[in-house]
């Protein structure tokens, strides 16, 4: 709808909106996150909902213990390989539309614990992530910022047309395979349909013995 016309109408006391706007307005202001803390970042998540930062101002204070009633998963903390199948399963149990915020360095990439045998190098290996917030831990303000970003994203989702989001399409999956525990690692170690790393295996250059791009694959 033409914005100019809308403004003019509202000056005449007529409020006009579209189905899409109304629908997204309702959704974005009542995001129900899953009560889901994994590690240190979860404490900051709790602090965000408490007195000083008060997440309720953004309509997202109704933390639900059951994934069936939640539509936002805040992956707050380190996802270990032992925990990853459970995280994916929880995600699968959430109804569409569902969103994921990866909170903190660990959820994004493994963070400080990346170098090791038991930490998953980022939850986006198994489930799609909508908003990443860097930080170790991100401050409550950063989490609020992530919420606002997510709200903007929800607001921009079209109900019809080619650009409509996943939950309105039949051809995109809303559940993702759950990895299993293997003898040395998770099987598979990543979901190849979600997680792409571009390799330069075809043209190997000698690695500089310094810093910079030496490890890019």
């Amino acid at each position: 709808m033409d914005q100019q016309l809308k403004i003019e109408l509202s000056q005449q006391g007529i409020f006009a909106t579209t189905m899409e706007e109304l629908y997204n307005w309702g959704r974005k202001n009542s995001v129900w996150p899953l009560t889901f803390g994994l590690a240190c970042c979860a404490i900051e998540m709790i602090a965000t909902t408490m007195a000083r930062y008060d997440l309720a101002r953004f309509g997202a204070e109704v933390f639900r213990p059951s994934p069936r009633q939640a539509d936002l998963m805040i992956v707050a903390g380190t996802v270990t390989k032992k925990m990853a199948p459970q995280v994916v399963r929880l995600y699968n149990q959430m109804p569409e539309p569902k969103y994921v915020i990866a909170m903190g360095a660990c959820a994004i990439s493994g963070g400080p614990f990346k170098q090791g045998y038991s930490v998953l190098k980022g939850i986006d290996r198994y489930i799609p992530v909508d908003v990443h917030i860097p930080g170790c831990p991100p401050r409550p303000e950063a989490l609020i910022d992530a919420f606002i970003t997510l709200q903007k994203k929800i607001d921009a989702q079209a109900l019809t047309g080619e650009a409509r989001p996943r939950h309105l399409r039949d051809d995109t999956p809303s559940e993702f395979p759950v990895p299993t525990y293997g003898a040395h690692d998770l099987q598979p170690a990543k979901n190849p349909t979600l997680w792409h790393i571009t390799t330069n295996a075809t043209s190997p250059k000698p690695l500089p013995t310094g810093t910079d791009e030496s490890g890019r694959d």
Partner: peptide, 20 residues
């Protein structure tokens, strides 16, 4: 399960080389 890191050094650099 090596993954790109912007500033690998020491042990990480070794891992990067091996992986490559």
């Amino acid at each position: 399960d090596y993954e790109y890191e912007p500033t690998p050094h020491d042990a990480v650099l070794k891992k990067a080389l091996e992986h490559r």
